[in-house]
Computed example of a mutant assay.
Amino acid sequence: MRFPRSRRDPVEVNLTPLIDVVFLLLIFFMVSTTFETRQALELTLPESASGVAADVSPVTLAVTAQGVYRLQGRELSAAELGEALANEAEAAREAGLVIEADGRASHADVVRALDQASLLGIRQVRIATAQPASTQATSTQAETP
Rank of each mutant, 00 (worst) to 15 (best):
T60K: 14
E100I: 04
A62I: 02
T138G: 09
G51C: 13
G121N: 02
I127L: 15
G96D: 03
E80C: 02
V52T: 14
T135L: 12
A101G: 12
S118Y: 11
A137L: 14
T138D: 09
Q136V: 15
E100C: 10
G73F: 09
A86K: 13
S77I: 09
Y69L: 06
R126L: 01
E83V: 09
S118C: 01
S77E: 09
S106Q: 12
P58H: 06
V125K: 08
T138H: 12
T60R: 15
A62D: 10
Q141G: 06
A105E: 06
R123D: 07
V110S: 04
A105F: 08
V111T: 14
A95E: 11
A62P: 04
A137I: 14
A84F: 03
E90K: 11
A89Y: 04
A133W: 11
A128Q: 13
S139A: 14
Q72L: 12
V111S: 10
A133I: 11
Q124M: 09
Y69K: 05
A128D: 02
T60Q: 14
T138N: 14
E88Q: 15
S106H: 11
V125C: 06
S134V: 05
N87T: 06
R74D: 10
V98A: 10
V63T: 02
V125S: 02
D102H: 10
A62L: 06
G67F: 04
E80Y: 05
G96I: 08
V56D: 11
S118R: 15
S57K: 13
A53G: 07
A130L: 12
A86H: 04
T140C: 05
T60G: 04
D109G: 03
A142N: 01
T129F: 07
L119N: 10
P132V: 15
A105G: 08
L76D: 01
A137V: 15
S134I: 04
G67K: 04
L120E: 09
L71Q: 08
A54R: 10
A108Q: 10
V63I: 15
R93I: 02
G73Q: 08
A113K: 11
S139W: 01
A113Y: 13
R123C: 00
L61C: 11
A92Q: 04
L120G: 07
R93M: 00
A86D: 08
Q116T: 12
G103D: 11
E90G: 01
